[in-house]
């Protein structure tokens, strides 16, 4: 038997109707109960609170955090930066590459060119220059591209200040 006849013969319509109704009513009752359960609990909690007169003092954690963040942000502006001979060499190399790339430049391209030219520890030196703020983010539309800081002087130190 096929088609609608088969459905009717197997009580298909009835089963489907009953099935959908049961699933819906089950979840409907459950959702009704859940929404009221929350209200009931909230009501009970309020009553409890009223009885206890419990007061919760705000923790001054936020103020502390803000203060710490401010302290972290406070950065020292260095006008003269002392670099080891090796760092000066890499710095000059990087300046040479970026002159060709043009400012603002992409750090990825800078690294690619540095690697191609076999510059020693290009990643480490890039990190160092970023830390020393010799490089800064161009910001605005050019965010993520970098420029060399103009107000910083490079001085050659005799000691190596590498890690």
């Amino acid at each position: 038997m096929y088609g609608l006849k088969a459905i009717s013969a197997a009580n298909g319509w009835l089963i489907t109707l009953a099935g959908i109704s049961i699933v819906f009513s089950g979840l409907l009752v459950l959702s009704f109960f859940i929404s009221n359960m929350e209200k009931a609990i909230r009501f009970l909690d309020k009553q409890k609170e009223r009885i206890k007169h419990a007061k919760i003092k705000p923790v001054p954690e936020l103020a502390k955090r803000k203060k710490k963040a401010k302290e972290d942000k406070r950065a020292e502006v260095t006008k003269v930066v002392w670099l080891s001979p090796e760092q000066v060499e890499v710095y000059n190399y990087y300046r040479w590459i970026t002159e060709r790339l043009g400012e603002p430049f992409s750090l990825q391209q800078l690294l690619e060119h540095a690697e191609k030219r076999g510059i020693r520890r290009p990643y480490y030196h890039l990190d160092m220059f970023l830390q020393m703020r010799l490089l800064y983010d161009a910001g605005g539309d050019q965010i993520g591209f970098y420029r060399w800081a103009r107000d910083i002087e490079i001085e050659l130190s005799e000691e190596k200040n590498e890690n």
Partner: peptide, 16 residues
């Protein structure tokens, strides 16, 4: 440590 995120558009973001 420091990780540099390099985006395909050429921009990069160092995370320290």
């Amino acid at each position: 440590g420091t990780v540099l995120l390099c985006y395909p558009n050429g921009r990069s973001l160092p995370l320290k």
